[in-house]
Nucleic acid binder design. Sequence first.
DNA 1: CCGATCGTCAACCGTTTGGTTGAATATGCC
DNA 2: GGCATATTCAACCAAACGGTTGACGATCGG
Lengths: 111, 111
Amino acid sequence: MTDALSPVFAALADPTRRAILSMLLEDDMAVTDVAEPFQMSLAAISKHLQVLADAHLITREKRGRVIWCKLEPDAFRAASVWMQGFGQFEPVDLDAFERFLETELTDPPED
Amino acid sequence: MTDALSPVFAALADPTRRAILSMLLEDDMAVTDVAEPFQMSLAAISKHLQVLADAHLITREKRGRVIWCKLEPDAFRAASVWMQGFGQFEPVDLDAFERFLETELTDPPED
DNA sequence: CCGATCGTCAACCGTTTGGTTGAATATGCC
DNA sequence: GGCATATTCAACCAAACGGTTGACGATCGG
């Protein structure tokens, strides 16, 4: 499967993995801390992180004992662009995105 | 799985199904015509269409013997909105979308 | 050096997925 | 009515998925 989009969507299809991505949206996290809120083994979370890394949705960097997980926005963008082609004939999302642009500009995310 | 997003992403994870969606972007199609370009059985395509319909990415309408398949942009939009949250802190896609807006306005899709 | 912590690996297990084939169900046409 | 066309259903299969447990290799702290 040389196709880059399939692993991205497959990774996003699992609610646990989407929850992990939402957590990483706030900050980079160690594997153990990622696993903490979930009712499943650390090994299971480790596998989920592997799937996300294979899809290039995250990267992992080892510093000492701890492996830090970090969002990788590029893969999101590729998939998002593909999807936008299917919404484009509907004017509604243009409005929505203009509204988003406005809030993004008037209320920029703090560092 | 009461979650609405998972079946959408799962449906999009298969390249055959994404190809079907691209075909439907041009026009509504009968099941047999959807199946024609693929090297697999009609039953397999029928199942793919079922998956897409379960995710509400398409609808099927029976007229006579023929079942017409039609894109349903709303499901795309929900998933797209979810994903935009992960790209939003990157300024690049704003530029891309502005360019898209421009082409969309200067070259509107004919009915 | 030793014990605790961090994370992955390997083997296993039940379920889902993506495909096949052949039969079944509508519907349209003559 | 009878035949061809359009689509799904049902049973089956191999492979992938999402989870478990237990052992293992690194690394930190005393």
